[in-house]
Amino acid sequence: MYTGTVKQNRRAVIFFLFPAVAALVVFFLLPIGESVIMSLLDYDPLKGFSAIKFVGLENFKRLYTTKDLAIQFRHVLYYMVLYIPLVLMTSMSQALMLNKDFAGKKLYKILFYLPVISSWVAVALIWKWLLNGKYGLINNWLMIIGIQGPSWIRSQVWAMPGVVLAAVWKDTGYYALILLAALKGIDKNYYEAARIDGAGAWQRFKSITMPLISPTLFLLVIINVINGFQVFESIYIMTEGGPAGATRVPVEQIYRNAFTYYNMGYASALAWALAIVIFSVTVVQFSFQKKWVTYEG
C-alpha cells in the first residue's frame, strides 16, 4: 500500500473519492430517507410547499383498499410465471449449442445477441407490429396452420403473453451467455467418465450438467424475479398498462402516479411496497436454495 506523507495522502483520498461519494450521498443515500418521508405525505410538486400535507400511513392504506397493489402484483406474477420458465428453457438450449465447437460460431453468437443489445423501445415497437392482430407476421403465420390468432396487445387476455413473447425473445441471448460461462466451467473429465460408464446424452445432462450449473440457474431465477417485479419498458411502450388496465404493473404505475398525475406521495408508498416485496422474496429464495442447488465441495 502507498505511502507518502499522511497529509498528502489524505488530500489525495478526498480528491479521488469526491465525485463518486458526492453522487452516492446526494442521489442514493439521502433519497432513501426522502422517499420514506414522501411516502407519508400528500405531495404534488406543482402546487408548491404550502400544499404538502402529512397523511401518515394513508398512502399505504390506499394501496390496500383500492386493491391497486394486489392487482399490479397479480400481473407481474402472471408475467413471471410465463416468462421465467420460457426464458430459462430457450437460453439453456442456446447455451448448450454454443458450448460445442463448430464453424461459424462467432456469427451465430452475434445473431443470438442482436436482440440483447437492441433498445427496449425498438424491440417493443417491433413486437407490437409483429403481434398486430390483422397485419402482423405472427397471426399471418398462425393463419397458415389454420389458427385464428388473437388481437394480442388489444386483448385483455393476450396482452401479457404478447409482452412475455417479446421479453423472452429479447433476453434469451443474455441469459444464454451467462449459462454458457457456467457450462464452460464444468470439468470435461466428468463427461468422459460418464461416457465410459455408458451414460447417454440425457443421463449426462441430468446427472452432470444440471447439478453443476444449478448455482447459476438459481442466480438467474433470482435475477429474473427481481427484474420481473420491475418490468417497465416493454409494458410502457407495448400496452401502456392496458387494455383496460390488464397489464398494469408496479413500476409503470409508480411512473404514472409520480410523473403524470403528480401523486408523489402515493407513488413513493408504492415504490416502498415494491422494494419490500422484492427484498422479502429474495431472502425467502435464498433460504430455500439448499433444497435444489448443488455447490461443489
Binding site: 442521489f27 439521502l30 433519497p31 422517499s35 413500476v251 409520480a258 415494491l274
Partner: peptide
Amino acid sequence: LPGTITMIPNFITLK
C-alpha cells in the same frame, strides 16, 4: 437498491 426508490427524490432534487 431498486431504482424506483431513488427516482422520485432525485427528480425533486434536480428540479
